[in-house]
């Protein structure tokens, strides 16, 4: 599913066989991907999947151990200085000086990158408006709410008009409304032409925000595609059944042409169907009735990103207690 880059278009990020070890532990285990100019591209995976390590190598905070990574045409390992000048970063944890004002935070960043005074000051005004912190310019950052801090960090990441903005878990710890608004800001930034690379462990964030997603698990990319493509790999619909005899039901339903695959769950089974589920359902019910199997529960739905994630990683991200609950048929029983 790795989207081939159209001929003539040079990807703004291209990574080949990136590996990173901490001692014996392979945090990043040979990943390859490319991001097109203007895209919003996500790494979706649980904490500890290697997302942050990969991003830290790309932004030159960790040295590249193995593989190749180019950002805006600059090699991460041989030309880190050029890479640093082409990117903006919003770190996973808040990295603000609590005792500097909003304006000083941006001014400091502009000075770090040696922006000329005029350009720097103009840019600050522009960004304060963009992230709606205009009225808070002289507040100390410790007085800001979580969402405002994040917005300030995004503004800071954009100070130097970077070609790529890296966002490591941009909405972690924010309340639902603030998250939605943050997505709006990120989309707005993207519309203005900045390529966005983000890592997240929130299904809905990856789903709603990204043009393309790579699901990352155990340091590897499991699959890459648009949200639509990823969901479609599970078929058009999912049918969940609880019956008097799940094992027999599985045997009987397997041969139906529209049924692509059947997954066993703790109490029932999930059928991935290639056709419109509403049309397959009567056949399924007839088959089971005919064999004398009692159906106690039946449900039909479209595959969600949760389902995709569980299907490809074999586990439920929520088992780690990190993401807001959202229904998914393919979710495994508690293990």
């Amino acid at each position: 599913m790795e989207g081939p880059v159209p001929a003539g278009e040079i990807p703004i990020i291209s990574v080949e066989n990136l590996e990173h070890r901490y001692g014996d532990f392979k945090a990043v285990d040979g990943i390859s991907f490319s991001v097109k100019k203007g895209e919003i591209f996500s790494f979706l995976g649980p904490n500890g999947a290697g997302k942050s390590t990969a991003i830290n190598v790309l932004i030159t905070l960790l040295s590249l151990q193995n593989g190749k990574a180019l950002i805006a045409g600059h090699d991460v390992s041989t030309d880190p200085q050029k890479v640093r000048e082409s990117i903006g970063i919003v770190f996973q944890d808040i990295t603000l000086d609590r005792d500097m004002t909003v304006w000083e935070t941006l001014e400091f960043h502009g000075r770090l990158y040696e922006m000329p005074v005029k350009e720097r000051r103009d840019r600050i005004e522009e960004l304060l408006k963009l992230v709606q912190l205009d009225a808070k310019r002289d507040e100390l950052t410790k007085k800001l709410s979580g969402g405002m801090k994040r917005r300030l960090e995004i503004a800071r990441g954009l100070m130097t008009r970077p070609k790529v903005l890296f966002l490591d878990e941009p909405t972690i710890g924010l309340d639902p409304q603030t998250r939605m608004r943050m997505w709006e800001y990120i989309r707005g930034v993207n519309r203005e032409g900045t390529t966005i690379f983000l890592t997240t462990h929130y299904m809905d964030e990856a789903d709603q925000l990204s043009d393309r997603i790579s699901i990352v698990d155990h340091g590897k990319i499991v699959i890459t595609g648009t949200p639509w493509e990823l969901k479609n790999t599970l078929g058009q619909d999912l049918v969940y059944l609880e019956t008097g005899d799940n094992a027999r039901a599985q045997q009987l339903l397997g041969p139906i042409p529209a049924v692509r695959e059947i997954k066993e769950k703790s109490k029932g089974i999930v059928l991935m169907v290639n056709e419109d589920g509403t049309r397959v359902l009567p056949g399924i019910i007839d088959t089971l009735r005919g064999a004398g199997i009692v159906i106690s529960t039946i449900n039909l739905k479209k595959p969600t990103m949760d389902d995709v994630f569980v299907f490809y990683t074999g586990r439920d991200i929520r088992d780690e207690g990190q993401a807001p609950a959202r229904g998914g048929f393919l979710r495994a029983g508690r293990h």
């Binding site: 640093r84 970063i89 990295t95 000086d97 609590r98 400091f108 770090l112 990158y113 040696e114």
Partner: peptide, 14 residues
């Protein structure tokens, strides 16, 4: 700065 502040920003800058 290293634990809670600007050190990452500074180290990732040119």
């Amino acid at each position: 700065d290293k634990n809670w502040g600007l050190m990452r920003e500074i180290l990732a800058s040119p």
